[in-house]
Nucleic acid binder design. Structure first.
Lengths: 248, 248
DNA sequence: TAGTGGTCTAGACCACAGG
DNA sequence: CTGTGGTCTAGACCACTAT
């Protein structure tokens, strides 16, 4: 009735991390040493540590060894998007927030024309084969990729506008959309939790065992027409999503 | 410059799932067959499939084989909590929502006195060693565990109240709290994303590769005093979190 | 260059549930 | 009973990077 050896190894270090015997940044013994200590083959040790890597508790830094993972959360507030701003802001909201903490924000921006597909078609009330403008950005803090923000617009709305240019827009796309006559008055936020795709792992430099939150932000005009759908991919080890509610 | 064999195997089936060649519920070839097809050892096949299990794309059902995972999301609306309800509701909100879709909701309830600890202490503005009442529930749909809802209260507020009894409360703890003079007027929702603890895996019957969203709901009275902090653990493969915003 | 983790093999035995 | 996945071993070679 005993647990398999690799699970005992995992449980041992999971416990040491939970109780603080091992703290973030601390190094674990090498696979070789653990094989000796537990009297098992190295592959068995690897299976055990693999469990903890999958749980996001430790990371392998070759050829240094295994380390207890350190995490730092930035606050992510979807509601900020619908709060008033100065008419001519110096920076977009993300840059503002990061710069306020003394760090350096930056972007990579890319604009593409794509087929809507099922997810976007449903939210923007288009045909799945309709063309949408995808404004794809990766946001960086101090050069480290932090999250993905892909905004999508029906092409009829934004043709020939600034939104089509892969350049930084200090006042934000929402403002541009409003100037085009599509001011948003209502939005729906949907959050899914899943493991990242290989593409997301690549774009965000994610380690194994890092789940992501996918935040769909669909904006509607006063007449109820959806004009914008943003897909934000937030690595779980870097974000804390915050909402605020008031009773009515 | 070729990818390792186990990654090619993972990529092969990841692709077939993404493109719909393999659909949810479909079975994969056996480890033995794949070892033959790819000309590698069975352990190598296991490493490849292990990647996909970790990504939550497939599940192993011994001794049947590997299957493409099926997922179904229930809608989770934190904002509902601050919407008005009938004075004497027949069921709590969760049961109402589930029963409305023709399924059967149920609960397991357990009440414990615990030390607050760092997370709760910070949110309830207590000392980490202070005692709080933990009302721990697992919510089931058709007998399947669906999510965890652990509500916490400073003991001074709820001593001798119904909240201390491990019994179903149709009108909900928020109402009881209001009757005790601690009506909530404001709440903060925080959402974290991470891999589940072994305890959560056990309580929720989670498969490998299933991340969870942890939703902290902290409620405040009109005077700004925190009176309640609920920790909801939502398996990523079963939930879609939805908020709604209106421009002000 | 030494030592780390990353990959792979070719066996083996086991527990479990379906036919 | 048969075949599945689950676990384990004792080797081997490789790629990478800190020193």
């Amino acid at each position: 009735m005993e647990a398999p050896a690799y699970q005992r190894i995992a449980a041992t270090f999971r416990g040491r991390i939970a109780t603080g015997v091992l703290r973030p940044g601390d190094q674990l013994p090498t696979e070789h040493d653990l094989a000796d200590q537990f009297g098992v083959a190295r592959q068995t040790v690897r299976a055990g540590l693999g469990v903890l890597v999958g749980e996001g508790l430790i990371v392998a830094r070759r050829p240094r060894g295994y380390f207890v993972r350190e995490r730092e959360h930035m606050v992510y507030r979807p509601q900020e998007k619908s709060r008033p701003r100065p008419a001519v802001p110096e920076m977009d909201r993300f840059s503002e927030q990061i710069a306020a903490t003394g760090r350096t924000p930056s972007y990579s921006i890319e604009v593409a024309l794509i087929e809507a597909g099922a997810d976007l078609a449903e939210r923007l009330r288009l045909d799945p084969s309709a063309t949408v403008v995808a404004r794809r950005r990766v946001r960086y803090i101090n050069g480290e990729p932090t999250n993905i923000n892909d905004s999508h617009f029906p092409i009829d709305l934004v043709r020939d506008s600034e939104i089509m240019l892969p350049a930084y827009l200090a006042r934000g796309t929402d403002r541009v959309l409003a100037e085009l006559g599509y001011a948003q008055h209502r939005a729906i936020d949907e959050i899914f939790v899943r493991m990242p795709t290989p593409d997301e792992v690549h774009r965000l430099g994610l380690g194994p065992g890092t789940p992501v939150a996918v935040h769909f932000d669909t904006g509607y005009t006063e007449s109820g027409r959806p004009v914008q759908c943003a897909v934000n991919v937030l690595p779980g080890d870097r974000h804390r999503i915050v909402f605020e509610r008031h009773w009515s």
